[in-house]
Computed example of a mutant assay.
Amino acid sequence: MNKLIFKFIETHKLDILDEWIRTTKEAADDRVLRVVSDQVFNSTSREFVDLVISNLNGSKDDYNSRLNEFSEKVVRLGWPLTFVSRGLHTFGVIVLDRMEQSGVITEENQRNLFREFSEWMQPMNNEIIDIYSATWEKTVSLQKIALQELSAPLIPVFERITVMPLVGTIDTERAKQIMENLLKGAVKHRSEVVLIDITGVPVVDTMVAHHIIQAADAVRLIGAKCMLCGIRPEIAQTIVSLGIDLNQFTTKNSLQKGIEAALELTNRKIVNVEVAK
């Protein structure tokens, strides 16, 4: 990189940083400003400008490492890619404007300085976009996996009794996850009774009922009994009107009653114990 540009940025680093923070904050949309405090915004902005400047004189390995860490941080903060890429453009505009105002850029060297500055900035912009995008895709992928795991958990509540609470809409992809978790969990916990609680499922149509029946059949094939809990009056009415047959397994209107029935099936029950005074 041209020594004039390098020396100017190093000499005026603090002034460039202050102007960059002020300009970027004024142009930032509400999404960026809502999710972080002023202190976090300022510290992250300083980190970004330091990162850009470190590409002037730091080693490539150190720069790439810092770039990866910064990308992960801004993804966690929820800053959009447009904000990050626009921030790099703003940095370039501030540097060139200040160099012109200071007389560092003249008519004689203007073309060469602009070309060299562009040759330095463009690869860095591409690197930032690529690493940010890769980090975002990785984060979304991990979140998707975590949500899938949490969307259909099988929870042991008593010995040989497990519960799967379902919340939200059930589509084909989620139904597969429910089936897989049911079978793996029932074997892992040595379940004799598995309760599927649909209290949190807003709508039970033919497709949802079909998926639940399939899951119940699969559980029976591995030697466990399946019970459907949380059937609200409106759900019961829908099931009847659709002509869905749920006679092949026990149904209860609440999870509490389902657990009581499951205890009876495993030769146990809940009793009140009086504490001696």
Results as ranks from 00 to 15, higher is better:
K3L: 10
K7F: 09
F8S: 03
H12R: 09
I21K: 12
T24G: 00
K25I: 00
A27L: 13
A28V: 03
D30A: 11
L33Q: 07
D38H: 10
R46V: 04
L51N: 12
S54V: 00
N55A: 15
N57E: 11
S71A: 14
V74G: 03
R76C: 01
L81G: 01
V84E: 07
T90W: 00
F91K: 01
V93H: 14
I94N: 03
V95H: 04
D97R: 15
R98S: 08
G103F: 10
V104R: 02
I105G: 04
N109P: 11
Q110L: 09
R111Y: 08
R111K: 11
N112R: 13
L113Y: 09
F117G: 03
E119K: 12
E119N: 11
Q122V: 15
M124G: 00
I128Q: 04
I128N: 10
I129M: 11
D130Q: 15
T135D: 04
W136E: 14
L142Q: 15
Q143G: 01
I145C: 00
I145S: 12
Q148L: 10
E149C: 01
S151E: 01
A152F: 04
P153C: 05
P153D: 03
L154P: 03
T162F: 00
T162E: 02
M164W: 02
D171P: 02
D171T: 06
T172Q: 13
A175I: 11
K176E: 14
M179A: 05
L182F: 08
L183W: 04
G185N: 07
S191F: 05
E192G: 05
V193P: 05
V193R: 11
L195A: 12
I198D: 04
G200R: 06
V201C: 07
V203P: 07
V204G: 09
M207T: 10
H211I: 02
I212Q: 09
D217E: 14
R220W: 03
L221T: 13
I222M: 08
M227I: 15
L228K: 01
C229Q: 13
C229Y: 00
R232V: 04
P233Q: 09
E234C: 01
I235R: 05
T238G: 02
I239H: 04
V240F: 14
T250E: 13
T251S: 13
K252Y: 08
N253P: 00
K257I: 01
N267P: 00
V271D: 15
V271C: 08
E274G: 15
A276F: 13
K277E: 14
K277S: 13
K277M: 10
